[in-house]
Simulated assay, not measured.
Amino acid sequence: MAEDLRLGLNLGYWQRTADDATGLVQAAERLGYDSVWTAEAYGSDAFTPLAWYGAQTSRIKLGTSVAQLSARTPAATAMTAMTLDHLTGGRLLLGVGASGPQVVEGWYGRPFARPLARTREYVEIMRKIWRREEPVTNDGPHYPLPLPGGLGKPLKLITRPLRADIPVYLGAEGPKNVALAAEIAQGWLPLFTFPDKIDTMYGTALAGARPDFDVAAMVMTMVTDDVRAALDGVKMMLTLYIGGMGAKTRNFHADIIGRMGYAEAAERIQALYLSGRKEEAFAAIPDELADGISLVGPPARIRERLKPWRASPVTNLLVMGPRDEETLRTVRDLVLG
Rank of each mutant, 00 (worst) to 15 (best):
M201S: 11
M236E: 13
A247K: 15
L238H: 06
F192Q: 01
V219S: 00
A216S: 12
V215M: 07
G208L: 08
F213N: 13
T224P: 03
L240F: 15
L231F: 05
I184C: 07
Y241D: 03
A216P: 07
M218E: 08
D255W: 12
P211D: 10
V215S: 05
F192A: 00
V234E: 02
H253R: 07
Y262F: 12
I184A: 05
Q186G: 15
K248T: 10
F252P: 14
M237L: 15
T221Q: 07
R250V: 09
M222W: 13
L191D: 11
A205E: 03
T221M: 01
G187R: 09
V234P: 00
F194Y: 13
I184D: 10
A207H: 14
F213A: 13
G233W: 07
G203W: 10
L238E: 03
D212E: 12
I198A: 07
A205I: 11
A207M: 15
G233C: 03
I257Y: 12
D226C: 10
D232L: 11
R228G: 14
M245I: 06
T204C: 00
T224W: 01
D225M: 03
A205Q: 09
D196Q: 15
E183I: 10
I198V: 15
D199T: 14
T221P: 01
M260P: 09
L206K: 08
V234K: 02
R210A: 12
L206D: 09
F192L: 13
M222P: 00
D212A: 08
V223H: 05
G244D: 02
T249G: 02
G187T: 10
I198G: 03
T221R: 05
Y241W: 01
I256K: 00
A207S: 15
G187W: 09
V215C: 05
K248N: 10
M245R: 03
D255V: 06
T224Y: 04
G258T: 03
G258V: 02
L189D: 05
D225K: 07
N251Y: 07
I242S: 06
I256G: 01
G244W: 02
W188Y: 08
L238M: 13
A207W: 14
L231N: 06
K235H: 06
F213V: 12
R259E: 10
L206Y: 02
V227F: 06
M260E: 05
Q186S: 14
A247G: 13
D255C: 00
G233L: 05
Y241I: 05
I257M: 15
D214A: 06
I256D: 09
L240H: 10
G244T: 08
L191H: 11
I184L: 04
A254L: 11
D214H: 01
A205F: 08
A217W: 02
D255S: 13
W188H: 13
M218I: 11
G261C: 03
R250K: 09
K235S: 12
A207D: 14
A185C: 08
A185E: 08
Y262K: 04
V234H: 01
L189Y: 07
G208F: 08
D199H: 11
D214C: 05
F194C: 11
A207R: 15
D225P: 03
G187V: 10
I242R: 01
G258M: 04
W188T: 10
G258H: 05
A209I: 05
V234R: 00
